[in-house]
């Protein structure tokens, strides 16, 4: 098996490494970098717990090879905010009780972020539809939607001022 040279930026840090071709991005994040905030909730690429941002777009890190990420920019939940300085989307989830066990939360935060980049997708129906592919096994969707609504509202207000 050939080694693949990968230059990748993860949470603002540059990593340059020759890696095995069959390493999944999710495994690299969790086992090599110990960034265990990216969760693995299924083995069938369906649950969305492992969603991260790859060049500003949500992807399932369990279905992407590290080798495919050469010259790309990755943001995981560890790169979003810190305990004492949460990202706005994390704050919204905290304020609205947007999580129960929290397992699906990292993936959902990124879905919420990508949704916030799209104008004209603000209705509750659109939010719920956009969450297709993010499973909350506690079934706490009601407060997840509430959290995302509040985040989008705040973000749109800030954008209007700018």
């Amino acid at each position: 098996m050939n080694k693949v040279k990968v230059n990748i930026k993860i949470n603002q840090e540059y990593i340059s490494k020759a890696v095995d071709a069959n390493i999944l991005l999710s495994d690299f994040l969790r086992y090599n970098l110990k960034l265990t905030g990216t969760h693995i909730g299924c083995d069938t690429s369906q649950c969305g717990s492992c969603i991260i941002m790859l060049d500003d777009k949500c992807v399932k890190s369990c279905s992407v090879l590290l080798a495919q990420c050469n010259n790309k920019n990755v943001v995981t939940v560890e790169g979003l905010g810190k305990i004492d300085k949460l990202h706005k989307v994390q704050e919204a989830f905290k304020n609205n009780h947007g999580l129960q066990c929290g397992f699906c939360t990292p993936g959902i935060l990124f879905s919420a972020l990508e949704l916030s980049m799209r104008k004209n997708q603000r209705s509750e129906y659109q939010i719920r539809k956009f969450l297709d592919g993010n499973f909350c096994r506690c079934t706490g969707y009601h407060n997840i939607v509430k959290s995302i609504k509040s985040f989008l509202k705040e973000k749109d207000l800030v954008n209007e001022k700018v």
């Binding site: 969305g48 969603i51 949500c58 992807v59 399932k60 279905s63 992407v64 956009f130 297709d132 592919g133």
Partner: peptide
């Protein structure tokens, strides 16, 4: 098709 994360890739 599928969900947003799949549609991105």
């Amino acid at each position: 098709i599928a969900d947003n994360a799949v549609r991105n890739k």
